[in-house]
Computed example of a mutant assay.
Amino acid sequence: MTARIYRPAKSATQSGQADLEWRLDFEPESAPTADPLTGWTSSSDMRQQIRLAFATKDDAIAYAQRNGLTYRVEEPKPVLRPVVSYSDNFKMSRAAPWTH
């Protein structure tokens, strides 16, 4: 069973720049099946429910190595934030004219 080590993306409601924790999740061994009576999905793989949190990537890798887990690390994508000033909205050289 392969473990995935990653840093989750922030939700749309978060605007801060603080770092999130690293997570270790297990990849599913089998596809979920639908119950014919209720339509609910279920799986016989109980490791899918385990989600471990670590302060650093190195801690997560050390845990996987210590427990003999096969793992893969997904590096987070860099966040590109344009530097924009509020006063740029009112410049005379603005591409689109300012209107009320």
Score class of each variant (00 low, 15 high):
69 L>A: 03
27 E>M: 15
73 V>P: 00
20 L>E: 13
82 P>F: 04
48 Q>K: 07
26 F>Q: 03
73 V>I: 12
32 P>L: 07
37 L>F: 10
7 R>I: 01
44 S>W: 03
30 S>P: 00
35 D>W: 02
32 P>Q: 08
67 N>Q: 13
21 E>I: 05
94 R>E: 03
46 M>L: 12
18 A>K: 14
2 T>K: 15
5 I>E: 00
19 D>C: 09
28 P>T: 03
75 E>N: 09
42 S>I: 01
31 A>G: 02
63 Y>A: 12
33 T>P: 00
62 A>K: 11
35 D>F: 01
33 T>I: 12
72 R>Q: 12
11 S>W: 07
84 V>S: 06
78 P>W: 05
99 T>R: 15
100 H>C: 10
38 T>P: 00
46 M>R: 11
11 S>V: 07
81 R>K: 12
80 L>D: 06
62 A>S: 10
71 Y>F: 15
27 E>N: 09
91 K>R: 15
14 Q>M: 10
15 S>K: 14
35 D>K: 03
62 A>W: 03
57 K>Y: 01
24 L>Y: 02
50 I>L: 12
23 R>D: 00
65 Q>T: 09
15 S>F: 15
16 G>S: 13
47 R>Q: 08
63 Y>H: 15
66 R>C: 06
56 T>P: 00
47 R>H: 06
30 S>N: 10
93 S>G: 06
41 T>F: 14
90 F>R: 10
85 S>V: 02
11 S>H: 09
24 L>M: 12
90 F>M: 10
67 N>R: 13
20 L>K: 14
24 L>W: 02
47 R>W: 02
75 E>K: 05
69 L>Q: 03
37 L>Q: 12
74 E>F: 11
51 R>M: 05
99 T>F: 06
85 S>F: 09
12 A>S: 13
35 D>C: 14
72 R>S: 10
48 Q>H: 02
20 L>Q: 15
57 K>E: 09
10 K>G: 02
3 A>W: 03
17 Q>D: 14
82 P>H: 04
18 A>F: 11
14 Q>V: 08
9 A>H: 05
6 Y>Q: 03
100 H>D: 14
90 F>I: 11
72 R>L: 10
76 P>Q: 08
40 W>M: 13
67 N>F: 12
1 M>N: 07
18 A>V: 06
36 P>I: 05
87 S>G: 01
64 A>K: 01
38 T>C: 05
82 P>A: 07
78 P>V: 04
34 A>V: 11
3 A>N: 02
75 E>I: 07
1 M>H: 09
21 E>K: 15
27 E>F: 09
29 E>A: 12
70 T>G: 04
41 T>D: 04
98 W>H: 14
81 R>C: 04
92 M>R: 15
20 L>F: 04
11 S>G: 13
16 G>C: 10
94 R>K: 13
